[in-house]
Amino acid sequence: MNLQGLITLDEQITEVKMTKEKYVFLEGPSDIIFWKSLLNGSDDSFNLIDISKVDNDERSNKRAVVSLVSKLNMEKHESFGIVDVDYDCFLSRNASRDSNKIENIYYYEGNSLESLLLHSSKFAKVIELICTNISEDNIEEFRNRVVNISRIKGKIRLINDKNIIGRQLACDKLKIKKCINKLQKAEQEILVVKSLQGSWGLSQKDMDIILEKMSCYDSIEADRYLCHGHDLFQALEALIASGVATTQKKEKYTENQLFKYFIPYFDGFSENKTVPDDLIGDILIDEIPNIYIA
């Protein structure tokens, strides 16, 4: 263990190699909560490992999971990892990948776990449970509103990921509530970017490039991959707080609380299923999709 009491990556690998038990490596505590519920009743027993509690030199929890599983693959161990797709699926028109498949690495069917949840059929159950003015008649309209709000920030995250202007924009400065009003989409995007021109230190050239790219990204139809999971849940939280979705006694819900409402609906989902193979197509994908962008 290191000075903070965390197990090191090498120690984790040694622990796994010394047992025949199955391990699932996950990016963080939310994933652990979800998979504990999902695996309830499964015929197989799995040790769920939160990689954020493993000391490593990787730049992200996702990279750490991939690195650890890749090393275990060389030992022919049956353990596997589950990570977010993030924006890895977006490629320029002339780009290509040698392979999207990494052995024993699986991805949520969407940008992230939260994206998977919001685009699932369980969304209607959760919203109809906590909101008094949303029903099966307008649930898809409401979901689309959550998605459309999140698309603005999703486009900026994609611009960051592709390093379009040569430096990173501080997405934490873009509060999701800035994306909620009745303006037309193009006007809304201009307003949002202009509001951050000073804090982001954007030149007029930067502004023009960003707005042009955001306009190009209108053709992206894969909202489940463009919209970041946390942005979706923040948009949902903001719409409830603003009264667009009314709740009993005008209660407000945090992103964390909303996430936890989804969990019971997945309890025992893997019962009578072979994990992870039988979850592909419902919960997981086994390779990153290719989505081409301008």
Results as ranks from 00 to 15, higher is better:
Asn256Pro: 02
Ile164Glu: 10
Gln188Glu: 14
Trp200Met: 13
Ile280Trp: 04
Glu212Thr: 15
Lys260Met: 08
Leu226Glu: 09
Asp218Gln: 12
Ala245Thr: 05
Asp206Gln: 11
Ile152Cys: 05
Ile159Trp: 01
Val193Lys: 03
Ile240Val: 11
Asp208His: 08
Ile159His: 00
Lys250Val: 08
Gln234Tyr: 13
Lys153Tyr: 11
Gln257Ala: 14
Phe259Trp: 06
Ile152Arg: 07
Tyr217Gly: 05
Gly201Thr: 06
Lys155Tyr: 01
Ser242Lys: 08
Asp172His: 13
Asp286Thr: 10
Leu236Trp: 06
Asp223Arg: 00
Gly268Met: 08
Pro276Gln: 12
Ile165Pro: 05
Ile165Asp: 00
Tyr225Ile: 06
Asp286Ser: 15
Val244Gly: 04
Leu236Ala: 01
Gln197Ala: 14
Val275Thr: 09
Ile240Ala: 01
Asn148Ser: 15
Leu226Cys: 10
Cys179Ser: 14
Val146Ala: 06
Met214Gly: 06
Leu226Ala: 04
Val147His: 00
Gln257Ile: 14
Val192Cys: 08
Asn148Ala: 13
Gln197Pro: 05
Gln234Thr: 11
Leu236His: 05
Lys178Asn: 14
Cys171Thr: 15
Glu221Ser: 15
Asp172Gln: 13
Asp267Thr: 13
Leu196Phe: 07
Leu258Pro: 00
Asn163Ala: 12
Gln184Gly: 12
Lys185Ala: 15
Val192Pro: 04
Phe266Lys: 08
Ile240Thr: 00
Leu232Phe: 10
Lys155Asp: 01
Gln188Met: 15
Glu255His: 12
Ile164Asn: 01
Ile190Lys: 12
Ile220Glu: 03
Ile159Glu: 07
Gln257Leu: 12
His230Ala: 02
Pro264Gly: 09
Asn181Phe: 10
Lys250Asp: 15
Ile156Ala: 05
Ile164Arg: 06
Lys185Ile: 15
Asp161His: 14
Tyr261Gln: 09
Ile180Asp: 10
Ala245Met: 10
Ile149Pro: 03
Ile159Ser: 04
Leu191Val: 09
Pro276Ala: 11
Asp231Trp: 00
Glu189Phe: 07
Lys260Thr: 05
Glu271Gly: 04
Lys205Tyr: 11
Asp218Gly: 02
Ile152Lys: 00
Gly268Asp: 02
Leu158Tyr: 06
Leu183Thr: 07
Tyr261Arg: 04
Ile180Asn: 08
Asp223Phe: 04
Gln184Leu: 13
Leu258Met: 06
Leu258Gly: 00
Met207Trp: 03
Leu191Gly: 00
Lys273Ile: 05
Leu279Gln: 05
Gly166Lys: 09
His230Cys: 04
Gln197Ile: 11
Ile165Val: 12
Ser219Cys: 13
Asp208Val: 09
Gln188Arg: 15
Thr246Cys: 09
Asn148Phe: 12
Gln188His: 14
Asn160Gln: 07
Thr254His: 07
Ala186Trp: 06
Lys249Tyr: 13
Gln188Leu: 15
Tyr253Val: 00
Arg145His: 13
Asp161Ile: 01
Ile280Cys: 07
Lys155Phe: 01
Gly198Lys: 13
Ser270Trp: 03
Lys205Cys: 09
Lys182Trp: 06
Gln168Ala: 12
Cys171Gln: 09
Ile209Ser: 04
Asp206Glu: 10
Gly201Glu: 08
Ala235Cys: 06
Gln234Gly: 07
Met214Cys: 12
Thr246Glu: 13
Leu158Lys: 03
Ile156Tyr: 03
Arg167Asn: 07
Asn160His: 04
Gly198Asp: 12
Glu189Cys: 03
Leu169Thr: 03
Ile209Gln: 01
Ile149Tyr: 04
Val275Phe: 12
